[in-house]
Amino acid sequence: MFHVLRIPRDLKVPRDDGRIFLLYRLSPDRIPRCGVIPFDFSPHNCYHTGHFLLEKSIMISDWGFIGIFFFLAIFFPIVPILTGVLLGPHKPGAVKNETYECGIRTRGPARIQFRASYYLYALVFLIFDIEAVFLFPWAVAHGQFPLYAAVEGVLFLFLIGAGLAYVWRKGSLSWR
């Protein structure tokens, strides 16, 4: 969670002993601000954009905001649906309730078995998904190491690529 402040361009934030600064001391117009500056203030968690400074708040964590967001997001679809349930008529009928298959009466159970090919695609996807979770931290950090770090990641990627080539050669990626 970030708090937006307007502070001077040449601001130096002391980061000696972890004291917490109230923001209105820093503001030129003395309007009280709610928020604090964490002591581990660094270019890493703030971005200077002109004379604005975005600074991390410590009261509600990033995931706390995501939690609030998802809690609210549950209501976005529920409210219209409930409105629809309340306002719409409700007159079920035998014909109306039938399974809709273009007017033809449905035959047999609806839950039919499907071909196993779907399963194989999901399996290959699973491998690539796990691979991606490892590759993202590497992509973030590889620039801070010598060239061999980049080569290691590429090796990782190409090993999975070899797996893909094997699956391809075996003909398992062909839809049938």
């Binding site: 196993a116 090919s117 399963y119 194989l120 399996l123 290959v124 491998i127 796990i130 691979e131 490892f134 290691e152 090796l155 990782f156 090993l159 999975i160 070899a162 797996g163 893909l164 094997y166 699956v167 075996k170 398992s172 049938r176």
Partner: peptide
């Protein structure tokens, strides 16, 4: 790097098993 080898073998194993089923 071992993870990538593991994933590779998992991929090959999956294809062998599912290939038989197919």
């Amino acid at each position: 790097e071992a993870v990538s080898v593991l994933l590779l073998s998992a991929l090959i194993g999956a294809v062998l098993v599912a290939g038989g089923a197919n």
